[in-house]
Amino acid sequence: MPMQYGTQMPPSFLWLPPASVDPTGAETRVRTRYPDALRESIRARGIRTPLIVEPCGNGFRIISGWGRWAFRRGEDALPAFVVDPAQPREAVWDLFLRDNDRWNVVEVARILDALRRLPGLDEARIVAEKLPLLGLHASADLYRRHLKLLTLGPDAQSIVEEAQLPLRRALVLLELSRDAVHSFAASAREHRLTVNELGEALEWIEETAHREGVPPEAIIEEAARAARGLGKDAFRRVLRERRFPRLKTGREALEAAEKELRFTSRVRVEWDAQLERPGIRLSAELADGDALAAFERDLAENALRLRRFFEIV
């Protein structure tokens, strides 16, 4: 996002020695993880985008540029815009918001929490004026849902930030106890779940627990135990089948029906695991006319058994 300044506060540009910057008292610090690409870029080319700082005591404090500060090269001077400390805090925060983008949902929550503590900023104004600066739709519901994330414990916030979970999935963590979050985080790390898999698994756990009235920890524990040594697919399958018992019943019935089939040639039987598409797909490897004739006989002999499939799908 391009830097914009209000007309009343022309910033001055300075090269600052790192020793003049006070890294404590970080009112605007909301990001705790920074991309490796930023580290690499600064290592290779130095800091190219000026920090935003304000005078503080004999030095300066950072308004925006914590990542740049963290990855600075030794004693290289830091490019910085210095803003007027007499500015209202809201204007300082506006500068910060305009200087950054791509917040994760927990960071957004931290920003909104800080904004609502500023004098003169009520919910209506934050929704109307600040959410768009964060690249979000000006919706009061969205504002409130983000703030709920701040009630998550550190483990849960860490999952959200590491996996960059979208808001909908992050909110699922609110439904889990701290123990459940801890246990889930361990399984997710062990099985190296992708972001999508992680979000999906969270939903399955929370929804199953809710529907069956069992603690989420029990479901996580069951999946972890069943998948021990078998890997990610087994872990996910246990969770999915707990969440969708009819799919499990259908799969078991189809597998049983498949075992009943007797073909002399090599025949593959496939069906839609979601049971959404009706019917089955048979693929046969037929080398010659004799094989075809045998296959035809097999089909006739298996007709009743094949009909079992259609009753299920």
């Binding site: 929704v127 109307a128 009061a140 519901d141 969205l142």
Partner: peptide, 8 residues
């Protein structure tokens, strides 16, 4: 009006 949330 577009800025109003679902409930408001």
């Amino acid at each position: 009006l577009r800025r109003l949330g679902l409930t408001e």
